[in-house]
Every structure is written in C-alpha cells, then in structure tokens.
Amino acid sequence: MVILFAVFLLTLLALTAVAIVRTENLFVAVMLTGIFSLLMAANFFVLDAADVALTEAAVGAGISTVLFLGALALTAEHERSVVSGRWLSMGIVVVTTLILIYATFDKPRLGDPRAPVHQHVAPWYLDQTPELIGIPNVVTAVLGSFRGYDTLGEVFVVVTACIGVLFILGVRRGGYSPSPDGDRLTTAGSGLRHHLIPKVVGRLLIPFIVLFGLYVLFHGEYGPGGGFQAGAIIATGIILYALLDGEAQALKAVPRPVLMGMVVGGATLYGAVGVAGIALGGSFLDYSVLADDPVKGQQLGILIIEVGVGLAVCGSLLSIFHAFAARGRH
C-alpha cells in the first residue's frame, strides 16, 4: 500500500518537473515549482525523513516561491521561446539519463537494511546519541553536535547569500523609510487589504505560524525541527504579514537594523559557542566542556546554536525578501 502511494507520488513529481520545463509562462512555472516542492516534501515524509520534509515544505514551497514571484514582478512573466540547440541538449540529457538508470541496477534496493550505507557510521549515531547527547532526535544530535561544523558552514552560506543580495541589489542600511503606497511586489498585498476574506483568514494564521515556529525551535531535540526550520517558518509568517498589509507595515514591525542584528548576532552566537569550547579547554565546537556534566553541556550547546541558527536564518531570509521588495520602488 505504501509502495503504491510512493510510486504515485514519485510519478507525479516527475510529471510536474516536465510540465515546469515545458510551460512558457514563468508565473505558471513558479506556481508549479511550489507544487513540485510540496510533492517532494510528501515523498520525504514517506521515506521517514520528517525533518527534511518540514524544511523542504517551508523553504521550497514557501520562501523560494516568494523569491521567484518577487523577481518575476521585477523582470518578465513570459519567456520568449528561442531554444538553442534543442536536439543536441535533448540528446545529452537522454543519454545521461539512460547511463544513470543503467548504473542503478546494482544499487541496493530501496530500504534494504544490509546496504553499506546503514553499516558503518549511521548505527554509531543511533547507538551513541542517547548516551553522549541524551536527546531523542538523532538528526538534531548529528546536525548540532557530531557534524556541528557543517552546520556552522551552512549558517555562513545563508549569511553570504544575504550579504550578497544586499550588496547586489544595493540596499542601504539605516535611515530607510519605505513609501507607504506599497510597491510592485506587494501591489497584490496592498490590494489584499480590500479583500476581506484572505485578510481575515491570513491575519488569523500569522500568530499560529509564529507560535509553531517557536515550538519547532525549542522542540527540535524531541521531535522533528530545529533552528533552520524555525527560522524559515517564522520568516514565512512575517512575509505573509507583508503580503497582507504591505511591506511598509512589516518593516515597521521588524525594522531593517533589527534584521541585520539578527543575522550578525545569530552567526556570531554560533561562532562564540565554538570559541567557548576552545577557551574552556576543549576543541572548537566542543560543547562537553560548557557544563560540568558533558551530556548537559552538549544539550546546552545544541540549544544555543539552534537559537543562533534560527536568528541568522530568519534575519537573512527576511532581509533578502525586503531587498527584492524595495527594488520594486526604484
């Protein structure tokens, strides 16, 4: 039964991908991309990856759709169909696909517990996490502690993107007053002010979205979730507010300097925990030395870095959104 469901979802996924590439209306393509991400998230859930499903839903279907729409409002809604070397490209693609499919025949079957991938490192994480870290969610333990250095890098990838977008779109800091009439990205947003139903329903949703984000942040050790998902979810809530009441209102609620403070503060908080490890006689990102009991230290460290990740991600995503929205006014 589950297999049939999975096959159905996967087939739909492939069909959506083809439809996205075929359509020449970019708006349609972006909307389909949102559906594609939701299908992907459903697939991840079927494959027992709850944390990843949550993230893909919040980022792929939420944030990236909004960014695409923001860019479309500033550029063009249709692609002009000049396809260069279609048959050559098609040939390359078909041949590579066949090679890839050919290479799958000796891969371990889906779900085979004897596959090498489940033998070496992974069982160690499952065995040792209760003892060394003492939290139920192994994904959070690996993400926050065992491979915490990767996660630090991940935070800095987002921070780099935020710095880059602000630099490229030339958003000046401080003394910034958005015009009250809204802008092109949120024209629909200011229009929504006069649409009672979306506005009332949307407003009702926002507190729950933010609350859910906070729950995901602080419950990440016990259930699916963590700093990144929380940051993305809270950012989505505030973006929804911007779409309903105009970007100016959203900036009034969370001004630009506060966003920048979240980005810098979050990233620095994470780094500071790492440096504290060195200062207290451990190595970089060694949380065991943060408290007398190493397990308590690990839990404390993971909690602090999750807050840092959440702050940096939420601040970065919102700064990026505002950078696109502000561009519409020039």
């Binding site: 490192v121 502690s145 065992f146 990767d150 451990g282 949380y287």
Partner: peptide
Amino acid sequence: IYLMGSWPAPYGI
C-alpha cells in the same frame, strides 16, 4: 590533524 568538537573521525568532522 584536528577533530572538530573533539568527536573521533569518521563520526565527527
């Protein structure tokens, strides 16, 4: 060689 977070390789980085 440096072990990030003092976790032994290959479990840590």
